Lab assay of single mutants.
Amino acid sequence: GKELVLALYDYQEKSPREVTMKKGDILTLLNSTNKDWWKVEVKATANDKTYERQGFVPAAYVKKL
């Protein structure tokens, strides 16, 4: 199945390749080969529509579930 990670801290994206997350968010882990930056998929809701974004977050800010 898919691997999930838990956001340990809030993170505000600093570039278009990154994604914003809030502490407590559960994210889908896409790639953890880089030890510093993990690629995740974030589900977000805006205007009653759910959309998914993929991007990088600092590996130290998340932990595998």
Rank of each mutant, 00 (worst) to 15 (best):
G1D: 11
G1C: 15
G1W: 12
G1Q: 13
K2P: 13
K2M: 12
K2D: 08
K2H: 11
K2W: 11
E3H: 11
E3Y: 12
E3C: 15
E3L: 10
E3D: 11
E3K: 07
E3R: 12
L4S: 07
L4C: 11
V5M: 04
V5H: 03
V5T: 02
V5N: 00
V5F: 05
V5P: 00
L6W: 06
L6Y: 10
L6F: 08
L6P: 01
L6N: 01
L6E: 09
A7E: 00
A7Y: 01
A7W: 02
A7M: 02
A7I: 03
L8D: 04
L8N: 03
L8F: 04
L8E: 03
L8K: 03
L8H: 02
L8I: 09
L8C: 05
L8Q: 04
Y9M: 11
Y9T: 07
Y9F: 12
Y9I: 08
Y9L: 08
Y9G: 04
Y9N: 08
Y9E: 07
D10C: 06
D10M: 03
D10P: 05
D10E: 05
D10R: 03
D10I: 01
D10Q: 03
D10W: 03
Y11W: 10
Y11I: 00
Y11V: 00
Y11T: 01
Y11Q: 01
Q12E: 11
Q12D: 15
Q12Y: 14
Q12R: 11
Q12W: 11
Q12N: 13
Q12M: 13
E13I: 05
E13W: 05
E13F: 07
E13T: 07
K14C: 13
K14F: 05
K14L: 09
K14N: 09
K14H: 08
K14R: 13
K14V: 07
K14I: 05
K14M: 10
S15A: 07
S15D: 10
S15K: 07
S15T: 10
S15W: 06
S15C: 08
S15E: 07
P16M: 08
P16D: 10
P16V: 09
P16G: 09
P16T: 09
P16S: 12
P16W: 10
R17D: 12
R17C: 15
R17F: 12
R17W: 15
R17K: 11
E18R: 04
E18T: 07
E18C: 05
E18W: 03
E18L: 05
V19R: 00
V19G: 02
V19T: 05
V19L: 11
T20Q: 04
T20S: 15
T20G: 07
M21W: 02
M21P: 00
M21Q: 01
M21T: 01
M21R: 00
M21D: 00
M21H: 00
K22A: 07
K22N: 08
K22V: 08
K22C: 09
K22P: 00
K23M: 06
K23G: 05
K23V: 07
K23I: 05
K23S: 07
K23Y: 04
G24Y: 05
G24S: 01
G24N: 06
G24V: 01
G24M: 03
G24K: 02
G24F: 04
D25V: 04
D25K: 02
D25L: 04
D25R: 01
D25E: 10
D25T: 06
I26K: 04
I26L: 08
I26G: 00
I26P: 04
L27Q: 00
L27V: 06
L27G: 05
L27F: 07
T28P: 15
T28S: 07
T28Q: 09
T28G: 07
T28A: 09
T28K: 12
T28F: 10
L29R: 00
L29D: 00
L29G: 00
L29H: 02
L29T: 00
L29E: 00
L30M: 06
L30E: 02
L30P: 00
L30I: 14
N31K: 06
N31W: 06
N31D: 15
N31V: 07
S32I: 06
S32F: 05
S32K: 06
S32V: 06
S32D: 15
S32P: 05
S32N: 11
T33S: 14
T33P: 04
T33A: 12
T33E: 14
T33N: 12
T33V: 09
T33G: 09
T33F: 08
T33D: 15
T33K: 11
N34M: 08
N34V: 04
N34R: 08
N34W: 06
N34H: 11
N34Q: 08
K35C: 11
K35N: 09
K35P: 14
K35W: 06
K35G: 08
K35R: 10
K35T: 09
D36M: 12
D36F: 15
D36Q: 14
D36V: 14
D36H: 14
D36E: 12
D36I: 13
W37L: 03
W37E: 03
W37G: 02
W37S: 01
W37K: 02
W37Y: 07
W37R: 02
W38P: 00
W38F: 06
W38L: 03
W38R: 00
W38M: 02
W38K: 02
W38G: 01
W38N: 00
W38E: 00
K39G: 05
K39F: 15
K39C: 15
K39P: 01
K39A: 07
K39V: 15
V40W: 00
V40S: 01
V40F: 02
V40R: 00
E41H: 07
E41D: 04
E41V: 13
E41N: 07
E41S: 14
E41C: 14
V42C: 10
V42D: 03
V42P: 06
V42T: 15
V42L: 11
V42Q: 15
V42E: 03
V42Y: 11
K43I: 15
K43T: 14
K43G: 09
K43V: 14
K43L: 14
K43F: 13
K43R: 13
A44E: 14
A44F: 15
A44C: 15
A44D: 10
A44S: 12
T45D: 10
T45F: 14
T45M: 11
T45Y: 12
T45S: 12
T45R: 11
A46S: 12
A46I: 15
A46H: 14
A46R: 13
A46C: 14
A46V: 15
A46K: 14
N47M: 10
N47P: 10
N47V: 08
N47S: 09
N47W: 12
N47G: 15
N47D: 12
N47T: 09
D48G: 15
D48P: 07
D48A: 07
D48N: 13
D48F: 08
D48C: 14
D48S: 09
K49I: 14
K49N: 10
K49T: 12
K49Y: 12
K49H: 11
K49W: 10
K49A: 12
T50L: 11
T50V: 13
T50C: 15
T50Q: 13
T50N: 11
T50M: 08
Y51H: 09
Y51P: 10
Y51E: 10
Y51I: 12
Y51W: 11
E52A: 14
E52I: 15
E52N: 15
E52C: 15
E52V: 15
E52W: 15
E52S: 14
R53A: 08
R53N: 05
R53M: 07
R53D: 03
R53Y: 07
R53G: 05
R53E: 05
R53T: 06
R53K: 11
Q54E: 08
Q54Y: 06
Q54K: 08
Q54L: 07
Q54A: 10
Q54N: 07
Q54H: 09
Q54S: 10
Q54G: 05
Q54M: 08
Q54V: 13
G55W: 03
G55Q: 00
G55Y: 04
G55C: 05
G55P: 01
G55D: 02
F56G: 00
F56N: 04
F56C: 10
F56I: 06
F56D: 03
F56Y: 15
F56M: 07
V57H: 01
V57E: 01
V57P: 00
V57R: 01
V57Y: 00
V57I: 08
V57A: 02
V57S: 00
V57G: 01
P58I: 04
P58Q: 02
P58H: 02
P58E: 03
P58K: 04
P58T: 02
P58S: 03
P58D: 02
A59H: 02
A59N: 03
A59Y: 04
A59M: 05
A59L: 03
A59T: 05
A59D: 02
A59R: 10
A59E: 03
A60I: 12
A60G: 11
A60D: 09
A60Q: 11
Y61I: 06
Y61N: 04
Y61L: 12
Y61S: 09
Y61M: 11
Y61H: 06
Y61A: 11
Y61P: 02
V62Y: 03
V62M: 06
V62G: 01
V62L: 15
V62A: 02
K63D: 06
K63R: 12
K64H: 08
K64T: 08
K64P: 10
K64D: 04
K64Y: 09
K64G: 05
L65M: 08
L65F: 09
L65G: 02
L65A: 05
L65K: 03
L65H: 05
L65I: 15
